[in-house]
Simulated scan of single mutants.
Amino acid sequence: MWILIFFIVIWYSSLFCQTFFQHRYAAHRAFRMNKFWERVFFIFTYITQGSSYMSPRTYGILHRMHHAYTDTEKDPHSPEFSKNVFQMMLRTRNIYNKIHKGKVQVEERFTHNLPEWLAFDKIASSPLSRILWSVAYLALFLLLSPTLWWLLLLPVVITMGAFHGAIINWYAHKYGYTNFKLKNTSQNLLVVDVLMLGESYHNNHHKNPNSINFGKRWHELDPVYPLIRFLAWCRIIKLRNQPQE
């Protein structure tokens, strides 16, 4: 079924860009890449995330704040201060927009060494761009869906980046198991994480934020880790820290 294939491709390509480029690269600088490849991934992230595109620079600031202020009032996406996942998503979106538009002062420690392409971000984050992507998604759903029931997936596609973030930022701070005792509520949501490409090993990540391998135990397979090693072997990226096994 073509619409299902389309959904799966968008789910994983968007998620890959979020975990590889925005999270592990922009926020944590777990590896390096030159300006050419950085801009290639800017464009690839925009293509895969479409209407839910997030500026790597703003994402990096937001996520660094999350690590610095986990589970406190300054945490931009903590379940501790929201009644439900939708309220948390709205709160996070408001903070993201204020940072992105320069309406709040951000500490210098959160802005150091972030990827920047301001002209591209301005276009990719514009309301017009988001509307055009949403219209394109709607057209594809109407063209490819055998029944209108498949349109129930359309809101997920339109808000894909926020949807992925909500799964981890809400559920991985409420449910799961822990490998490490930390002074926060982070947990490993899934025992084997194929669905979230290793992002659900949130307790592991809070223990070693700069590690390129989010998995620690034998069953915790991080699908992005071998891809990172492959890209390093191809010399597209350069590893800064060896993975902590």
Rank of each mutant, 00 (worst) to 15 (best):
R109H: 05
D121K: 00
F180T: 10
E38Q: 14
P155W: 11
E107Q: 11
H112E: 15
N34T: 12
F16W: 10
R93L: 04
F36S: 11
F141Q: 04
V156S: 05
F120E: 01
H202E: 01
E38V: 14
Y225I: 15
W37H: 09
N113I: 03
T48F: 11
S55L: 13
F7S: 06
A139N: 05
T111H: 01
N208T: 14
P127I: 00
V135Y: 10
F7H: 05
M88F: 04
R57P: 02
K103P: 08
N213V: 13
A139I: 09
E116C: 03
F16Y: 11
N210A: 06
L231Q: 11
F110S: 12
E245K: 15
M33H: 12
F36I: 15
L151G: 03
S78W: 13
T19G: 07
W11V: 04
A26Y: 01
L144Y: 11
L90S: 05
Y53I: 13
P79K: 05
E116L: 09
W150V: 10
D193P: 11
I99A: 00
I47F: 12
I43M: 11
C17M: 07
Y59E: 02
L197M: 11
S125K: 06
R130N: 03
K183R: 14
M33K: 14
I131A: 08
R64K: 15
V9R: 09
A124P: 04
L239Q: 12
D71S: 08
P226N: 08
R29V: 09
R57D: 14
T70I: 04
P56L: 06
Y175T: 08
L15T: 06
G165C: 04
K35L: 13
Y225P: 13
I236T: 09
H112P: 00
F20I: 02
L195V: 12
P76E: 07
G102H: 03
